[in-house]
């Protein structure tokens, strides 16, 4: 624990990952402090998973400098991995073992004694609310349960840093909220979290600080609030017009907001006062099918930075 105070859990300088001609990560810089929840937000293919795999010491760095707990993954891979918990994008639970055995065996991979492994397995099964499924085969679990078991597995070594790659992708809303709630508790206990996501609500819920990634680079960095303040507005007015009228809108909303985005299915007006903007639209004689005033989100930040939506 001592060096995690001295040096940050993760530090990357000009970090590059190439697969042949493909540049997956193109010279990124970031630092994750102890105890914080740090997010990588971006669409599929932005380089988030490649970054995570380098941090997890299962993917050699092409160039640049990466340290985890102040150490070089190239040299101290096994030692670093011993202090990490990893939740990969796709569950890779051991299908030949039961739910509880998955945890006990994982404890062994971290050189924990069998008795200690059994003790922690039982505690963690309770923590992720799977104690009643302890003896079941993994294949019989639902998607949300498998995810929770994967998270429990990542905690078996009481990691100083938990890496989560798309922790809730593919889960139904109820299962997602349960996962978020458990992760939030871990955060409260002081576990450092690094997670990737392409869900802006997930990033807002969980992350103290995040980087927006696009095309292998970092487009922006800050707290969710800072990013929204900087790249979006307090409120956003969303208008939907009948499909045939939408092309004719271009130009007729000028001056009503700080910025206007025309999307294929709707129009976004960035403004500090959504209600006022809606009234102004009305005064110009425009009749949208629906109008909605909402808070600015990270989705808007991403749209502003890249000109694209997070989920296409």
């Amino acid at each position: 624990m001592t060096d995690s105070i001295a040096s940050p859990p993760i530090s990357a300088r000009n970090l590059v990952k190439r697969f042949g001609d493909l540049v997956a990560v193109d010279g990124i810089d970031f630092e994750v402090a102890a105890g914080e929840a740090f997010g990588f937000l971006g669409p599929n293919g932005a380089g988030k998973t490649s970054t995570m795999r380098m941090i997890a010491c299962v993917s050699p760095v092409t160039s640049g400098r990466l340290t985890v707990f102040g150490k070089d993954p190239e040299v101290y891979g096994a030692e670093i991995r011993g202090r990490l918990g990893v939740v990969p994008q796709a569950d890779n639970l051991d299908l030949e073992l039961t739910v509880r055995e998955n945890l006990i065996m994982y404890a062994r991979y971290f050189d924990l004694a069998w008795s200690e492994g059994r003790k922690r397995a039982d505690e963690l099964l309770e923590f992720v609310q799977l104690d009643e499924r302890a003896k079941d085969k993994v294949d019989d679990l639902s998607g949300g349960m498998k995810r929770r078991l994967t998270i429990a597995r990542a905690l078996i070594n009481q990691p100083d840093l938990l890496l989560l790659d798309e922790p809730t992708t593919g889960l139904d809303p109820q299962a997602r909220h349960l996962v978020w709630e458990r992760l939030y508790r871990l955060k409260q206990r002081g576990v450092t979290l690094a997670l990737t996501t392409h869900y802006m609500d997930e990033a807002e819920q969980l992350c103290d600080r995040l980087v927006v990634m696009d095309k292998a680079k970092i487009a922006a960095e800050g707290t969710p609030r800072e990013l929204i303040a900087k790249y979006s507005t307090k409120e956003v007015l969303e208008l939907r017009f009948p499909a045939d009228e939408q092309p004719a809108i271009d130009g007729r909303l000028d001056g009503l907001a700080d910025r206007v985005e025309l999307l294929p299915d709707r129009v976004l007006l960035y403004t500090s006062d959504g209600e006022e903007a809606a009234a102004a639209v009305h005064r110009r004689g425009l009749r949208p099918e629906s109008s909605l005033v909402r808070r600015g989100t990270l989705e808007d930040v991403f749209l502003r930075l890249t000109g694209r939506s997070l989920i296409d």
Partner: peptide, 9 residues
């Protein structure tokens, strides 16, 4: 299984 194993020590 290997993928899971090698993300440990």
């Amino acid at each position: 299984t290997f993928e899971a194993v090698i993300s440990t020590p």
